[in-house]
Design a binder for these strands. Structure first.
Lengths: 332, 332
DNA sequence: CGGCGGCTTGGGATCGATTGCAGACATCGT
DNA sequence: ACGATGTCTGCAATCGATCCCAAGCCGCCG
């Protein structure tokens, strides 16, 4: 592999000039510049990123930390991060903490010396850990808020309000909610949103069915509670749980949406692959990733957290209700 | 951030000694070694990976290139790669080519200077591109064969033979196969395997229903063909297509498995989330990723492709038939 | 015609580690 | 007691770029 010295020799100039011809063309006479460029072209020269990184103290590289790559939600976030970073010429280190928050500090530390900044999707780890991470290098949070840190999140309160509005319009007046893990940041946010929306509507009763595991299996228990409470609609923490509810209801001979309506959250691909197709809330998952990278890169460029960027980050990304076949008018 | 010089100063030794205390402890007297280690500990010193990479010509870093991170298959492969690499202390650059084979050479080139080797999951790009990639740095292929390159793949022929054996044992004698894209390497392999298995069994007719898109929607057309041909069982190219078939059959009032049995391939999570739960073939997807990293690391360690490793790679990873509710005895 | 300023260019220090080489010192045998 | 051998340590080169500083050269102005 050719280096700057080889190019210099071929072009009959010094290494300094080669470097300048590439990074600060204005400082080099056009004649020399072209000679250097031609030589570089001929040798297929590209500056060694490691050497450049050492000298500049910047690796021109980003890191991404997610709890589980097989979770479609984070797969999409990863895809978005990846796409935007690639467009900006930044390769991305991806690490999967395997749902283990205690592994995160170690991974952040491993990243710290190799990347210029990291995107952290860590719904479960505590504030303290996060704060320590940020002390080491620029960090942008995804789907998670912290007053003094840049973050991108979805407007869950609005999303869930759309859901309740939809159900209300159909005529539902007694709606069950199957919550997720108590520790989930966004789960708490959605529950709040639901209560606020219900209060605004006035004539809707929200029945808390309980807290369930955010997986297919968690939906079984939720379905049984829903039937027991006699609600006409169930709002689930996420799509997987909603699918479990659908399955369980079918098993018990309860018809969806004739007897009970079911709504999910996230709009994972599977939502369209079941019958009835699931009414759910689409969140811009790749958009979260892209936005996070935008924020991070602007931070790196300006050297500080841009207040305007921070403010616009507070303005959450919109969620969108997607109405399919699992919701309908309640039984008479 | 502390560097070797700081540690040296604190411990009252030279930088060389610091370096040696950490990388070649035997060459340093135990007294000094402990002094150095204590100093390093106190300052929280970690060798700068960039500087080390420059000097050694090794970045201690791997790359992974996949066509689509949102595809559960590649998400799992990525997870496997990630897990094994992490255990070995290698961070992983992940790039998503967005299903665009022409983007791959560029991404490989971007990686080339930054990583020690790459894992390439590229079912669609041509041999020539791959060969050029390998000229630049060590590459291990996933789910794709090339005689002179290390690769890991699944024993699809055996997997599909298990499927046909299962159907045969249930009594099916006329089995339809819904193939995937003609360009798919592993698809061709499965089709071959099916023919061979049918021949061995003797009294089974395999009806080729045609070539369909490997998505949910592709299954609709396949289902119609299956009904038209009067087969008692359908083997689909992958799970998504099988789910489409299930949906279409249900829509047409054809009962699964009473009237027709359906089998998928891959065992994606969704397979258990539908009714009837899908009989399918589980392929060790994270295992592929792990194995690929093993191969790559041994290549990097030894400096050449280990013949024994290559041979053991030829020995494909086992596929496993998972029998659920979408297969049963054919109608009388 | 001398000097000053601007434009180009090269020399060499620098980033932070690793490592060959050689010097310092101790140990051991004779 | 002296040389040989071995152990431990430091000096300095090295990886490949970037960039400060100074030098060379040109033209222009007084």
């Amino acid at each position: 592999m050719a280096n700057a010295h080889d190019v210099a020799q071929l072009a009959g100039v010094s290494v300094s000039t080669v470097s300048r011809a590439l990074t600060a063309p204005a400082q080099v006479s056009s004649a020399t510049r072209e000679r250097v460029l031609a030589a570089a072209e001929r040798l297929g020269y590209t500056p060694n990123p490691t050497a450049r990184g050492l000298r500049l103290g910047r690796s021109h590289t980003l890191g991404l930390l997610v709890p589980d790559l097989e979770n479609p939600y984070f797969a999409s976030v990863t895809k978005g991060v990846q796409a935007r970073a690639r467009a900006a010429g930044y390769p991305v280190f991806v690490a999967d903490s395997e749902e283990d928050p205690t592994a995160e500090p170690g991974l952040v530390a491993q990243f710290a010396r190799r990347v210029d900044g990291i995107v952290l999707a860590s719904p479960r780890s505590d504030d303290d850990t996060l704060r320590k991470a940020v002390a080491q290098l620029p960090v942008v949070l995804v789907s998670r808020d912290m007053v003094d840190l840049p973050s991108v999140a979805v407007d869950d309160a609005d999303g869930i309000a759309q859901v309740l509005g939809h159900l209300h319009a159909l005529g539902h007046r007694k709606v069950g909610v199957a919550a997720g893990p108590a520790t989930s940041w966004s789960g708490a946010r959605r529950l709040d949103g639901l209560r606020v929306a219900a209060e605004r509507l006035g004539d809707v009763t929200v029945v808390e069915l309980g807290s369930f595991r955010p997986y297919f299996s968690g939906g079984f228990a939720a379905a049984d509670h829903a039937v027991a409470q006699g609600v006409t609609a169930v709002v689930a923490f996420n799509d997987l749980m909603a699918l479990g509810i659908l399955d369980r209801l079918r098993g018990r001979g309860v018809k969806v949406p004739q007897d009970v309506s079911v709504v999910g959250y996230d709009d994972v691909d599977v939502a369209t692959l079941v019958s009835p197709a699931l009414t759910t809330v689409r969140v811009p998952r790749t958009g979260l990733g892209r936005r996070a990278v935008d924020l991070l890169l602007s931070w790196l460029d300006t050297g500080h957290v841009d207040d305007r960027a921070l403010a616009s980050a507070r303005h959450r990304l919109p969620a969108e209700l997607v109405i399919r076949d699992s919701t309908g008018v309640p039984p008479a």
